[in-house]
Nucleic acid binder design. Structure first.
Lengths: 148, 148
DNA sequence: AGGACTCAGTTTGAAATCACAACCCACTGG
DNA sequence: CCAGTGGGTTGTGATTTCAAACTGAGTCCT
């Protein structure tokens, strides 16, 4: 247990920071759609299932946090599209690890959509240590709370 | 765009399946606490910031989905603790990739908690292709929708 | 024995969010 | 002219969330 704060404030945590941006019910599904190269409001609404008004506020929030960008692609009539920024594309590892976990621990039945890696095989995410390159195995991590 | 359903049903998707289990505001923070080896209701409530009644229903849901297990560890008085199951521990890659994304794209300032790998360095998650072992780079994935 | 305290919740009532449908405006196509 | 599309906005209830108070079994202090 790294830091058990004495008062009642929640733990200071980078994971919580990330979830404040993409931790609601729809945001990661929106990012997924943009990964799938959908760009238009109506398509995103249909494919995620998010209500249109909720989707409007989520898209604005994601724009504000720099995860996606909104661009006008037609002046008459005014039409807009949404695209991932670099920060948004950097969520790929999160989606890919979620996809693997969902496949192995939630879904029964085959994956409806697969990713193919340029190596020629289906891409299945595996997390490695950046420093030594080894894959993560159980019991290999130790917590180090930063002093103060 | 792999499958754009003609009707208004959302896309059939493993990521959505995963998010239905751990995609709400508190579940992944609960899992984080259990990774940090907290086990007791009150500690989880304090460290996540979740209201106690919401936490109660989230814990039940996670138990129902097999992510955590509830065990009585004292009979008099009755006391319970929560622990990760194997399925819950399998969420480590999700938390670690979220942590990295939060650090690089949300938080400004140093990480309050670090993970040390047994190799001796700080553990920073990097996603690799299980098949070929190469790290994921941009533009290396192609979508393959499963027919029907 | 009395009183304070802990843990794991449950209850309460207000506040915020959500879902759903309808509406709007600027076009386009027939 | 009329219907349809894209990208929303508005209005109305239903649902969920929240913070704080309360419970109840049991322990600790004195």
């Amino acid at each position: 247990m790294p830091t058990a704060p004495a008062d009642k404030t929640p733990r200071d945590c980078t994971i919580a920071d990330a979830l404040e941006v993409v931790g609601d019910r729809w945001s990661l599904l929106v990012v997924r759609e943009l990964f799938y190269a959908e760009r238009r409001f109506t398509e995103i609404a249909r494919n995620t299932g998010a209500p249109r008004d909720v989707l409007t506020t989520r898209l604005r929030k994601l724009v504000d946090h720099g995860v996606i960008a909104r661009k006008q692609y037609s002046e008459h009539p005014p039409r807009y599209e949404y695209r991932l920024t670099d920060a948004g594309r950097a969520l790929a590892p999160v989606l890919l690890t979620l996809k693997r976990w969902g496949h192995e621990h939630v879904r029964n039945g085959p994956d409806p959509v697969l990713f193919d890696h340029t190596c020629g095989h289906e891409f299945i995410a595996e997390v490695h240590c950046t420093a030594c390159g080894d894959p993560l195995d159980r019991g290999q991590l130790n917590l180090r709370p930063r002093p103060q």
